[in-house]
């Protein structure tokens, strides 16, 4: 467990703000103790300081995971969010997309969202805005990036992709081996 370098911290917060905007602040200033981001084997973990202290007893080789994993830095220093970050992204998300029940299963297999599968969408979302994807009964299913802005979506062809898939909860099963 080590502190994030300034560079990586910057990348992380930029990425976070794509999805949750100014709510990043709420992740740092919490009423229930201080939480912090830590890096371990290129992965970013978000954890309470209290727990972090206890985890220091373990050697770096023995420690597998502390708190919640947000994502992983690639060798080229790009951060990719894992589906595990959804636990914190979903409650603070500003822009949301809802998919129809008929499209749920398709999305969970890793497909982009076509206009035909789009149930609802937040107003005023621009193109390439990070969004959290929900099912119609408000179950967070994953996150992605809008391929079209909200206004464009309204006029789009039924088969056009409106939201690019980035991560979905099907990955817990599909890529359990590579995720952690």
């Amino acid at each position: 467990m080590k502190r994030l370098s300034d560079e990586r911290a910057k990348i992380l917060f930029e990425k976070l703000s794509k999805y949750i905007g100014t709510n990043v602040k709420q992740l740092i200033d919490r009423p229930d103790g201080t939480y912090c981001f830590r890096e371990h084997r290129d992965r970013v973990y978000y954890v309470s300081e209290r727990i972090l202290k206890l985890s220091e007893c373990f050697g770096p080789e023995k420690l597998v995971c502390v708190g919640t994993c947000f994502g992983k830095f690639s060798k080229t220093n790009k951060l990719k969010f894992h589906i595990t970050a959804l636990y914190y992204l979903a409650p603070y998300a500003q822009y949301k997309v809802w998919v129809k029940p008929s499209f749920e299963q398709q999305y969970l297999y890793g497909n982009h969202i076509a206009k035909s599968g789009l149930g609802r969408i937040t107003e005023n979302a621009g193109q390439y805005q990070g969004v959290v994807v929900y099912s119609m009964n408000d179950l967070p299913l994953g996150f992605g990036v809008l391929a079209r802005s909200t206004t464009e979506c309204k006029t789009a062809d039924p088969m056009t992709t409106v939201c690019f898939h980035q991560s979905d909860i099907g990955e817990y099963i599909r890529s359990e081996d590579t995720l952690f």
């Binding site: 373990f58 597998v64 995971c65 708190g67 994993c69």
Partner: peptide, 22 residues
Amino acid sequence: RIKAVVANFHRLGVINAIISCE
């Protein structure tokens, strides 16, 4: 097998856990 623990804890929303392979 510890990978399964990590996956399950994240899926179930357990955030107070320290997972180790000792």
